[in-house]
Nucleic acid binder design. Structure first.
Lengths: 154, 154
DNA sequence: CCTATATCATTCACTATCTGAATGATTCTT
DNA sequence: AAGAATCATTCAGATAGTGAATGATATAGG
């Protein structure tokens, strides 16, 4: 039965789709473990990231940018609030909305997340040697194509 | 309050860790949608991929390679079996084990998955233009560093 | 040989994560 | 002023995953 149909047994694993998906899962898992040390999960870090780049956003827009249901966002923000990372108060201009403020503690936690991610990046790209920088640039280009926030490199 | 602590608001989003994680999620979600058309989920495709590259593996090893609990693997294989993609029979040499055979139907489904992944890859890398091939090579290098199965390019 | 221990697949109870459909408050439109 | 739309929130349920038993089988030591 082998040699008759003779499939390319690496066709799937060879795609960038598969590799991105799998490496992304590895990256996120490591990130999750690292920031778990101070009580956060990747989605919490993502919320802080979006909020710092887009401070006056509504919870609806926040949920939309992160690709989750608004009902899930409530719980994520509840957690961040109880951790002292954000504060919510009704928008006086539109009392349906909440104005979300990232506190100093929130910024502190964000910086810790960014450091953890930077340290994991080193591990992930270690095997690339001097080609790591080129890979980073191309990856950032793809990220930008898909609307991910880009680093301010001014 | 702005300008006092003055955080780098793109520090996290700028890391390859964050970008890999997010793009990986996008890749997997698109892949999931595509292969959902013929009833599979990404983990099922992953199982077929591992099995085709490593046919005599035990369920334990399979679960270990995929980073899931053996108890989860049972359900994934039950599904693939009921879909006609694999067959299980007790290993006569060690009757605790199951010998897992990928059927013709399993190979057919695998090829469909590989095609879907290839087509999504084109979308993902479209913005890279002629630099896509370079990115693909670097990504494959990283994948190999982390033990992902590599395409046979003989 | 036979008893201990280990290993395999499987089941089961439980937890975590996420969604979509209500709900109530508020705002917008006309 | 009324009806439609929008916001945050709650809630019930779906889905995916884990770790701890369980029973069958295999292996190692005395």
């Amino acid at each position: 039965m082998k040699g008759v149909s003779d499939i390319d047994a690496g066709a799937l694993a060879g795609t960038a789709t598969f590799q991105l998906g799998t490496l992304g899962a590895i990256a996120t898992e490591r990130f999750s473990t690292a920031i778990g040390a101070f009580g956060l999960k990747p989605k919490h870090a993502g919320v802080l990231q979006v909020l710092l780049l887009d401070p006056l956003i509504s919870q609806q827009e926040l949920a939309h940018k992160m690709g989750v249901a608004p009902s899930l966002m409530v719980g994520l923000l509840d957690f961040l609030e109880s951790a002292g990372a954000i504060e919510r108060e009704r928008d006086p201009a539109d009392r349906r909305r909440q104005v979300i403020d990232v506190t100093d503690e929130g910024e502190r936690l964000y910086v810790l997340c960014a450091r953890a991610a930077a340290s994991i990046e080193v591990e992930l790209l270690a095997g690339l040697g001097e080609r790591a920088e080129g890979f980073r640039k191309l990856l950032a280009n793809v990220a930008e194509d898909f609307g991910l926030p880009t680093r301010d490199t001014r």
